[in-house]
C-alpha cells in the first residue's frame, strides 16, 4: 500500500515535468504535452483489462474465495472502463488539434473502441446475470475469451488500415523518436498512472472485501 501512496508525491512531480520542464516537440508545439497524459491513460486501460482477465483465470483455476476474486476482476474492469473512456476523449481532442478531425478510424482508435465495447458487453453481461448463482463462471469465461481475441485484434487492425498515429507520421523511418527528456517524462507518467490505478484498485478491493465479509456474517 505504501508503494501506491507514492502517487501523492509522484503525480505533482509528473504534472510539473510534463507541463513546464519538457521542451515542446518540433512539429506539434505545446499541444504535444497531451502525449504525457494520453499515453499513460491508454496504457492503464489495457493493463486493467489484463488484470481483470488474469483474475478470471485464477478464479476458474482455484475456485476458492469466489466472491472476492469475482469482485477483484469486476473492480479492475470498472476502473479500466473509466480509463478507456478517458483515452477515447483525450485522444479525440488530440486528433482534433493535430490532424483536424475528432475521429479518423485510425487503427489504434479502432482497437480502443473495440476494447470499450468489450468492457460495455462485460458489464451488460454482468448485470444480466444478477440472479444466476453461476455468474462468476460465466463472466470470467467471457473475459478470458475476449482476452484471447484481443491479441488477434492488435495484430490485424493495423494491417487493414494505415496508421495516422504520431510514431509513424512524425518521422519517416517509422520509429519512435523522442528526445531523452520527453522519454523520461513519458516513462515517469506511465509509472505514476500505473500507481494511481493500483491505488484505486486496492481501495476498491478492500471495500469489496468488507462488503463480502459483512454479508456473509449477516447470513450466518
Amino acid at each position: 500500500m505504501f508503494l501506491y501512496r507514492l502517487v501523492y508525491v509522484l503525480m505533482p512531480i509528473g504534472i510539473f515535468l510534463s507541463l513546464l520542464w519538457v521542451p515542446p516537440a518540433n512539429i506539434l508545439g505545446d499541444a504535444s504535452r497531451i502525449l504525457y497524459f494520453h499515453v499513460p491513460v491508454a496504457w492503464v486501460s489495457f493493463l486493467a483489462f489484463l488484470v481483470a482477465g488474469l483474475h478470471s483465470i485464477a478464479l476458474l483455476i482455484k475456485k476458492s474465495e469466489i466472491l472476492y476474486r469475482e469482485a477483484m476482476a469486476y473492480n479492475s474492469a470498472a476502473i479500466g472502463m473509466v480509463f478507456t473512456v478517458l483515452t477515447v476523449i483525450t485522444g479525440s481532442i488530440w486528433a482534433k488539434v493535430s490532424w483536424g478531425h475528432f475521429w479518423n478510424w485510425d487503427p489504434r482508435e479502432t482497437s480502443i473502441v473495440i476494447l470499450m465495447l468489450i468492457y460495455i458487453a462485460y458489464f451488460s453481461l454482468f448485470s444480466a446475470l444478477k440472479s444466476n448463482p453461476n455468474r462468476w463462471g460465466i463472466s470470467s469465461v467471457y473475459l478470458i475469451i475476449s482476452m484471447i481475441i484481443a491479441p488477434f485484434l492488435i495484430f490485424i487492425v493495423p494491417r487493414v488500415y494505415p496508421s495516422l498515429h504520431p510514431d509513424t507520421i512524425i518521422n519517416q523511418d517509422k520509429k519512435i523518436h523522442l528526445e531523452a527528456s520527453m522519454r523520461i517524462t513519458l516513462f515517469f507518467l506511465v509509472v505514476t498512472f500505473t500507481l494511481l490505478y493500483g491505488y484505486i484498485y486496492k481501495i476498491t478491493n478492500k471495500l469489496s472485501l468488507i462488503i463480502i465479509k459483512l454479508r456473509s456474517s449477516h447470513d450466518i
Binding site: I15, D30, F37, I93
Partner: peptide, 14 residues
C-alpha cells in the same frame, strides 16, 4: 488558439 488550452482540457478530463 493557445495549444496549452487543449492540454488543460485533457488534464481536466482526466
Amino acid at each position: 488558439s493557445n495549444p496549452l488550452f487543449f492540454v488543460f482540457i485533457v488534464v481536466l478530463i482526466i
